[in-house]
Amino acid sequence: MRRIDHRILVGFTLLVALIAILSYLTLFSGTVGLSWSDLSFVSHNDSVESRIFWEIRVPRLVAAVLSGISLAVAGLALQTLFRNPLAGPFVLGISSGASLGVALSLLAGFSFGHFGVLSGAAVGALAVTAIVMTVASRFENSTILLIVGLLLGYFIDALVSLLIMGSDSESLRVYVSWGMGSFGRLTFDGIWIYAVCTLVGVMLLVLSMRYLNAARMGDDFAKNLGVNVRQGRVLVLLGASLLAAASTAFCGPVAFVGIAVPHLAFMLFKTSNHRVLMPASALCGVVLCLAASQFSKIPLNAVLSLVGVPVVLWVIVRGGGIRK
């Protein structure tokens, strides 16, 4: 036990240190270098440095941190719920729902109020979440839910294809750009909404800790341990959907983090206890997203896959002795 505790301590310390370094780089380095010694721009004023700091760098840092937390934690919870290592926040069709909302806004000219595209993505994601929750309340079997989510995704993707067919090239360009993902779209106004959504989503998952730990061995096993499986499943779905919806709305469809990071966290911490794995996944997600945010000129999904895939593969191959 002592060895495991030592591993956890070292792991968390390293991740926090990495986050601190990457946060510093996100805030102070870039095309316009901001000086750490002269922090006058930190106080709100009209200088170029101050505007770059408050309107670009801080929202980008917050977007990367919140996305890392939401996508990784949602991915972990869904992989546990479905007992499927390929599950992620996007298997339930939530990403497709958000894409439909954005497509309706950008390609079909629907207005979704003050936040425009963001509201469109949120409405689409939440609509799919509502359908998934309805299915979840009727069927006990998680596999059915997984199939319904995938089918829903295909159906919505077909609808988006129809919208794409009838759209002009400028709208299409904006839509494709949204689909590539970015941490640069979050505005200062949106930070609070994104933060509250993330907090509520994470809280719902933390409240399901007993379910998540027991559900790894199956629903019957969890029931035998006195866990309220139905309630746990609804809380996990609601929390993960909220996290995925918020992240998709503010940063676009970023699938890689949710699928890969829980595996990365497991390989680093060698435990499947969600009391460790959940914060570990959150921190790993933040590290990955902050690292990707350093390449702000390249589409986010491309950076995450180009940088993330080799790293995750390396960790998995190195930890491959775990289970033949």
Partner: peptide
């Protein structure tokens, strides 16, 4: 039944304390 591929013996036995 289901067997989790990422759980140690101790972690599994510790699940008995869930209630």
């Amino acid at each position: 039944g289901v067997s989790c591929d990422r759980m140690t013996v101790r972690e599994f036995i510790s699940l008995g304390r869930t209630p």
